[in-house]
Simulated assay, not measured.
Amino acid sequence: MELKNLGEFNFIHSIESDTIYDPNTVVQGIGDDCAVYKVTEGYEQLVSTDTMVEGVHFSFQYMMPYDVGYRLMTANLSDIAAMGGIPRQVVLSVAAPGHIDTRILEEIYRGVKEQCQHYHVNLIGGDTVSIDGPMVWTITIIGEIPQGKAVLRSGAQPGDVVGVTNYIGYAATGLGSLSYNLDGYPMTRIGHQRPEPQIELGITLRELGVHSMNDISDGLSSELNEIAKSSRVSIIIDETLIPLHEETYKLAEALQTNPIDYALLGGEDFQLVFTAPKELSKALENLGSITLIGEVIEGEPVVQSVTKAKEIRLLEAKGYNHFHE
């Protein structure tokens, strides 16, 4: 059935079930003018918003509707992870053309709900409106963190080590294989279509005492520059230490590209990059999914890298930029 035939309120009613996964934090969910949720004593609130536009952030050519919802939730959860926080509630708004099949919308919601269920996040409200164009999905997420413990971009200090979680360039590899219709990239395709937020690692890193953190949504180069500028420090990394998946090397060879660029410029991995006191190096490495790739030094807020050829190059804040000409 098309959305215009079902109607806004009937559609909302059809998806409002199975939305509360932590009832202890909710007083009133979907069904009133506002939702009401509880705030944990001794905690501060975190809030972030992400928007995904059809044709800009996702394409049904490369992912199923379920994947769209899954990835949209990951993007929001990742912002909470980057602060070392705990996700609690979300509100979701969608602008969709009236002719769209409601089964597509239901599948997107299913992807959102399954991520919410996995991370015990409540879907407590939102809005649905008609639009004469591509779909637009917006989620606002609310999280919390022990008072005074939020890990900011501005906390990096000279002498810190720089680390990342898991593989970098993973999602860009998957998208590249889909774009060129190349077979043999099963893991990184999943990384593009259904990336996972690093909630548990974010909390662990915060509890260990890392100084700064950022999630990798726009490429490692861009995220490192954000930390350097916010903290007013210089960062230098070793490109040979950046953890790349074997499928990234395979795709780079097939397309005659530089594999490191998938990590530096690709984005949407939703992994974490952080800086931490050097004395935490052993504890960080013992986590098993952390790779130390560089250090923080005094100087102008720039990011440099040492290449495989032992050359030093300046890494500009390049990555995905919506307003770049």
Rank of each mutant, 00 (worst) to 15 (best):
E2K: 14
K4C: 04
L6C: 04
F9P: 01
F11K: 11
H13M: 09
H13Y: 13
S14K: 12
I15F: 07
E16F: 10
S17R: 14
V27Y: 06
Q28V: 06
V36N: 04
Y37R: 00
Y43W: 13
Y43I: 06
L46D: 04
S48P: 05
T49G: 03
D50P: 00
F60M: 12
F60T: 12
Q61K: 15
G69M: 04
N76M: 10
M83P: 00
P87T: 08
R88G: 01
V90A: 05
A95T: 08
A95F: 13
G98R: 11
D101T: 04
I108T: 10
Y109E: 06
G111V: 08
C116H: 03
H120C: 04
H120S: 09
V121H: 07
I124S: 00
D127H: 09
T128N: 07
V129W: 09
P134Q: 13
P134H: 14
M135C: 04
W137E: 03
T140S: 07
I141K: 00
I145Y: 01
G148P: 00
G155M: 13
A156Q: 12
D160V: 15
D160W: 15
A172T: 02
A172W: 02
G174C: 02
G176P: 01
Y180R: 09
N181E: 15
L182F: 11
G184K: 12
P186V: 09
I190L: 11
I190W: 05
G191Q: 02
P195L: 14
P197I: 06
Q198K: 15
E200T: 11
G209D: 05
H211A: 09
D215F: 11
D218S: 08
S222P: 01
E223C: 01
E226R: 12
I227P: 00
S230K: 13
S234A: 14
D238T: 03
E239T: 07
H245G: 00
Y249I: 01
A254F: 11
Q256A: 09
A263P: 07
G266K: 06
F270W: 12
Q271P: 00
V273Q: 01
F274A: 04
P277G: 09
P277R: 14
K278L: 05
L280V: 12
L280A: 07
L284A: 06
I290F: 05
L292D: 05
E295Y: 08
I297K: 15
Q304W: 14
Q304K: 15
Q304D: 05
T307V: 06
A309T: 14
A309E: 14
I312H: 03
A317C: 03
K318P: 00
N321S: 10
N321M: 11
N321H: 13
F323D: 09
